[in-house]
Each structure stands twice: as C-alpha cells, then as structure tokens.
C-alpha cells in the first residue's frame, strides 16, 4: 500500500487549485483596478493620500489601531425612494396619482419623497406613472443597514475605496467604532487630538486607551504665553484637571499625533460610485455614536 506519489500529486494539485482560484484569478480581476472619474464632480476617485496622512497611516499601523477598529461599512439590501422633483403643469392629476401610489403620501410637493419600496421594479413603474402625468419624478437608491444608520458611512464600502491603502487595514473586530468615514464624522483636528490624549476627557466612560505618549506635556507659568502648537483647552475646560498653583501644563501633540489625525481626517469614502450608489448629498452624520459629553465635534 504505497500511495506516496499519488498523495504528493493530490496535495500539490489541491493547493494549486486554491492558489489559482483565490490568488491568481482575483488578482487578474481586480489587481489592476484603476481610479475612476466621478460622474457628479468629474474628479478622479480615489485620490492618493497626502504625505502627512500617509505618515499617519504608518502610526496607525505601528500601534495596531486595526486590532480594535474596522474600516468597512456594511449595507443591507437597498430601498428605493420615488422622489417628486417637479409637479409639472397638471398638479391635480399628479396629486391624484401620488395618492394612488401611496395613501399616506399627503400633499405632493416638489422635492418630496412619495413612496419607499424595497422593489426596484415597482419604484420604476411608479416614477413612470408620475412622469406620464407631466411631473418630473426620479427613483433614488437609498442604502440601508445598521452601519449606515449609525452614521458610519453613506454607502457600502467597495474595493474601489481601498485602492491606495498600503497596507490595507480593514480590521476584523469592532472593539471600537468603525472608522471608515471618521474623517467626515469628526472633522475637527482638535477633537481628535484631545480624544487621543485622553478619550475620557471627551466621552464619559470611553473604553479607548489614552495615547499620551503621542503628546508632550510642557509645564509653564500661568502668565507665560502657551507653548507653540499647544492644544486649545477651552474645548475640554470642564473636564481637564488644571493643577493649582503657578504652573499649568500645555499639551503639545508630537509629529506622530498630528500625522495620525491627518490620516483619520483623510478617511472619508462617501463618493457615490456605480457599484455603490449613495444619495447625493450624503446624509449628515447621525450623532448616535460616541456622543461627546463635553464638546461639540
């Protein structure tokens, strides 16, 4: 019973199949992906990160931020809004049809959503009926899902979003919130810096560790001018414990902290794509997550 060569061949063949199917074919399909031109703005998407943000990505990688934070928005099946853009000349008939489409629609006004349905065919038919009556109606694709409702992104994340990520740090666990669009959610650099310095100054009971080693603490006399680049304490005035006496401490972010924040600000993949349509303009961020206790973002 000597199956040696047979086993060797079989073992080689099965691994070759897996290697071909999961590495070579995907590489042929999407390995050469290129930036696309956005229909709305004519800009290329995505754009490479600026130098400082790239340095920030290295800080993010070195400290293993991806161990707790994912960077991927998930999406449920989309729904379709029938939107009335213009009533046209025959307003009464349009109103009548709108009521037939959706009893609860109320008085049709330009810019109003008449109906929401999970079936694209129905939405298209309804839009056609309105258009036939002389109105201008359009079907808008609305992404759904808990991630989107939490304000973690306007649409699902797709391969195109990660074209310039090197290394790609999608993350596999959400011990902290998703950061896919943190740049849009928390645009202020000061907020990010204070949050990195001590998250509990910003959010009560936050589970994120403080990254004080990214900051220099510079003592100075109370009447002396603040150190160059020191963080603005008015943002955390309520929670920042200022020592009594003649000296105060200035919090000065290091170059690493500034780069990291620039990287976080660059995370904002909201551009509507063919494979991932998003309503234009993207909805404002919901304040459901990490509601700041002391500061407005």
């Amino acid at each position: 019973m000597n199956f040696g060569p047979l086993i060797f061949l079989g073992v080689f063949f099965t691994m070759a199949c897996s290697w071909f199917g999961m590495i070579v074919v995907p590489q042929l399909q999407i390995g050469g992906q290129q930036p696309v031109k956005l229909e709305a703005t004519g800009q290329m998407y995505p754009l490479p990160r600026a130098g400082l943000a790239q340095q920030g990505a290295a800080v993010y990688r070195a400290n293993g931020c991806a161990a707790c934070h994912s960077q991927q928005v998930r999406q449920g099946p989309p729904v379709f809004d029938v939107k009335l853009n213009d009533l046209g000349t025959n307003a009464a008939q349009v109103a009548d049809i709108a009521r037939k489409i959706n009893h609860a629609a109320g008085a049709p006004l330009p810019g109003k959503n008449i109906w929401r349905t999970p079936v694209k065919k129905d939405a298209d038919a309804a839009a056609k009926r309105l258009t036939d009556a002389g109105a201008k109606a359009a079907v808008v694709i609305v992404p759904t899902g808990a991630d989107i409702e939490r304000g973690w992104g306007a649409r699902v994340s797709v391969a195109q979003d990660y074209l310039y990520d090197q290394p790609l740090m999608l993350g596999s666990r959400r011990i902290g919130p998703d950061l896919a669009n943190i740049g849009a959610r928390k645009p202020g650099a000061d907020w990010q810096l204070w949050h990195l310095y001590n998250p509990r100054l910003i959010t009560d009971g936050s589970f994120m560790p403080a990254y004080r080693f990214l900051f220099n603490e510079v003592p100075r006399r109370k009447d002396a001018p603040p150190a160059l680049g020191a963080l603005d304490k008015t943002l955390v005035a309520k929670t920042f414990p200022e020592p009594a006496g003649e000296t105060v401490t200035d919090i000065v972010p290091t170059a690493e902290a500034v780069a990291l924040v620039a990287y976080l600000a660059s995370l904002n993949p909201d551009a509507p794509l063919f494979e991932a349509p998003a309503p234009v303009p993207p909805p404002p961020a919901a304040p459901a997550t990490n509601t700041p206790a002391a500061v407005k973002p």
Partner: peptide
C-alpha cells in the same frame, strides 16, 4: 505588495 483589497484577499 499587491494593491487595494487584493491585500485583504491574500491575507
């Protein structure tokens, strides 16, 4: 390194 999500697939 390969580009984009190919890294995730290889990973």
């Amino acid at each position: 390194p390969v580009r984009g999500v190919m890294q995730a697939i290889v990973g």
